[in-house]
Design a protein around this nucleic acid. Structure first.
Lengths: 126, 126
DNA sequence: GTGGGTGCAAATACTTTGCAACCGA
DNA sequence: TCGGTTGCAAAGTATTTGCACCCAC
């Protein structure tokens, strides 16, 4: 792993992700960071998202459609609205209980989990 | 929704998926069904996978990399080996408990969930 | 016969990558 | 200066789609 060097673009991407709870796509992030760095390219956004994910500073969430990114790394779950495609946080009381259940049932080494609930969000239900 | 019509190709795809527990990709399915229908095209495989998913006869599992498909629709969870990328079933004792936990914590309408555990499978751990 | 299904190829959506210039330590 | 980072554009991967022909009903 090469030595990490500071970059204003990466900082901006991370700051943006930490400020939000709706898990934007690379493209949304691109459009935002562009306001601060009009010349930034999508490739740079993707490169930094991959790097931050590898460092564990953000989380990459794979869904139907483009990947989503999350600047909040405490273990938590997600809700995907199948109508408006919003992706929202769910903080369970005992998130670790989910791993414990599976560890009993499975012989491999479980390092973590990701739960994705799906349904209709309260906005769309109206 | 247009009237459904029988197709030998669709039947073959479904039969293949029901016979396996390792959640093949569209391409793997294509290569297999090709033995029975040498002229089948990838497009047809994708079309039928989408149709079967919509009908609820199979499940589409979105992961890092290509989508995986599962011919077994009883609620269950999955384990993704980050080393060999195999995707395996985990049958929890009380799968519905996961929904109940979230329903308390979230105001939207939760219709279901998908849990993906990650780690190292027993084969790769050796 | 009618409309859904198929094969083929082209198109799309999303993401990664090669390269020369640039910038932080 | 050295090597990580960037912008740009081209390439790559996974999936979808238009169209003419075929087949189930």
């Amino acid at each position: 792993m090469p030595a990490l060097k500071y970059s204003r673009q990466r900082e901006s991407i991370k700051r943006f992700l930490m400020s939000r709870f709706d898990h934007p796509t690379a493209d949304t992030i691109y459009l935002h960071v562009r306001q601060e760095f009009p010349n930034i390219s999508l490739g740079t956004v993707y490169r930094n998202l991959a790097l931050l994910t590898e460092l564990g500073e953000i989380i990459k969430i794979t869904t139907d459609g483009p990947d989503r990114f999350d600047g909040h790394t405490e273990p938590h779950s997600h809700f995907f609205c199948r109508k408006c495609h919003s992706l929202l946080d769910i903080h369970l009381e005992d998130e670790a209980a989910i791993d414990r259940q599976a560890q009993e049932a499975f012989p491999g080494i479980i390092e973590g989990h990701s739960v994705q609930y799906f349904g209709i969000c309260s906005k769309c239900a109206k």
